[in-house]
Design a protein around this nucleic acid. Structure first.
Lengths: 303, 303
DNA sequence: GGCATCCATGTCTGACTCGCATGGCTTGCA
DNA sequence: TGCAAGCCATGCGAGTCAGACATGGATGCC
């Protein structure tokens, strides 16, 4: 029965003002309309609702019973629309909202926490959640709409398509050595110089880990200890049980009894780190703010 | 900052459908629009809100964070508008609503209660309140908007202006006699025949009561007992202490040990009883239903 | 590479709404 | 009683807007 969907919100505004002021003319003055415009809008609303909303009296108008009934609804609707406007405004300023961040493990060592911290300092109302995962899985989550922003790395070439990538930094490779190691004070080492070392790695097979770089350098690393967690690798290295590769993102937070020495860039192709969003998805204001924080955070790390 | 008040409710409907279906085209199909119309409405809503509401993906669209925020408000608004529509519909059928009735005393003996009873039987959801008062006061209350309908009487000429009057019946005058009275079985009496009686009246002075009719009939009634309540007058008459005038509206509910005999119409100018509403006020559906019930009720009493 | 799907947009037409004016109605006052 | 003032309704013209229609660009699938 709701045939003509031409209901205008302005009609409700006019209706409310007329009900409050008891006069078409006064409402017109207040709203900057002509009296005739008010008359027509009320008339249109009456036609739309099929109910006479005002009784026209010689000195103004008065709500009918149906008008009184409509008034409550009209004001509720107008209030709700104002609330929507306010919410959108708050969202636009990233004052509130939800932000789901994903990142690969070492990005969570310093880069992401710093950015999240800066973001929350600026926008305390934001609801930020983070999740750790491999870059491929993060990319899938982005595409599925389960993440807003992901920090991921491209070991070689590009990560899976369907993403909008923003380069953050090139993650150079470091090697972590015991403080007593003979290379500990060098400004830089070549990978080949470490061919004789014993290695701590995340996996037994060097092919699909950071250790693949060693293969390119011409030797097959002797992997004696396999531990996944970076904190554990640090422990083994500090105990003098071997050396391990560590990306720059994690190098800054190594324990003080370790030496972290950069590898020569030619030995390890720098791993690109990106802030990614789903292709075609315009970042929400919160996401945009987080991307900016990530950029700042990365700039600090690059120095 | 809310400059352009051109917000259309149809935009919200379209927006909601698009959000639900994830596609402009599908929403257009469902709503009977063209795809371009949907595109334009969404675009207009985005312009109005100043926020991008959907991300356009290759296979449809997806809500942005701001769109998700707006969606809740939009659906609340649409629900509220539907509720308003339903309320107006219920009001139109007098299923719900408020009705304030005023009536003069004897109208409350039978006429008004019967009408109220019929009204509530038909429309149980109505909130009916009644109030008793003199006709002049009721007329003022109508004009002030404190009453919706009043049942009032015009002793002579018209009641105060500013009212829309609907004649209900002409309230003929009866005389209440003890069952043993010599006129008790007459079909009709002349007022002059009662000149020798002792009278029960509401006031000492006959001028401004029903007893004024006696003056016109050529005698000054001997008022022995002054009681205001009709139930008390009945008691005095039944006890054989006198006779009293009683309007037709109250005559039907006299106690059985009284005789109620009509007076000749020439002796007493029939008192017109009206259902009145404030001038220019269109009766609410509930009021209209009550007016109809009053008419029916009056028709029954006239027989 | 062709095709299907989806959204954006240029264009035109019909409808709508606004302001301006006028008229009817009532009230208050001289 | 005649007049002025205030209120709402309405006829009229100009500007605006929303809709359909058609087309174009972009993407994904076979």
């Amino acid at each position: 029965m709701s045939d003509s969907h031409g209901l205008q919100v302005s009609w409700l505004r006019v209706f409310s003002a007329v009900a409050r002021l008891g006069s078409f003319t006064a409402a017109a003055r207040e709203l900057g309309y002509t009296q005739s415009a008010v008359s027509r809008q009320v008339c249109a609303l009456e036609g739309e609702t099929g109910a006479r909303l005002f009784d026209r009296l010689p000195r103004g108008v008065r709500l009918t019973e149906q008008g009184r009934s409509l008034l409550g609804h009209a004001e509720a609707v107008l209030d709700r629309l104002d609330a929507a406007r306010r919410d959108l405004e708050a969202l636009r300023e990233a004052a509130v909202g939800r932000l789901r961040v994903g990142a690969f493990a070492t990005a969570n060592a310093a880069l992401v926490p710093a950015a999240v911290s800066a973001l929350r300092a600026r926008h305390p109302g934001l609801d930020v959640t983070t999740r750790e995962g491999l870059s491929a899985r993060l990319a899938a989550a982005l595409a599925a709409g389960d993440l807003d922003v992901a920090v991921l790395s491209a070991v070689s070439g590009e990560p899976p398509g369907g993403l909008d990538l923003r380069p953050l930094l090139d993650d150079a490779m470091f090697v972590a050595l015991p403080r007593t190691h003979r290379f500990a004070d060098r400004p830089r080492v070549r990978l080949a110089d470490l061919a004789g070392e014993e290695w701590i790695a995340g996996r037994r097979d060097p092919e699909d880990t950071l250790m693949a770089a060693a293969l390119h350098a011409g030797f097959r690393p002797r992997i004696r200890f396999v531990v996944a967690e970076w904190i554990a690798k640090q422990g083994f290295v500090a105990a003098g049980l071997g050396v391990t590769l560590v990306p720059a993102l994690a190098a800054g937070v190594a324990r003080p009894d370790l030496a972290v020495v950069p590898l020569h860039p030619d030995d390890v192709p720098p791993r690109a780190v990106y802030a990614a969003t789903a292709r075609g998805i315009t970042p929400s204001p919160a996401a945009a703010a987080f991307l900016a924080a990530l950029r700042d955070s990365a700039a600090v790390l690059r120095r």
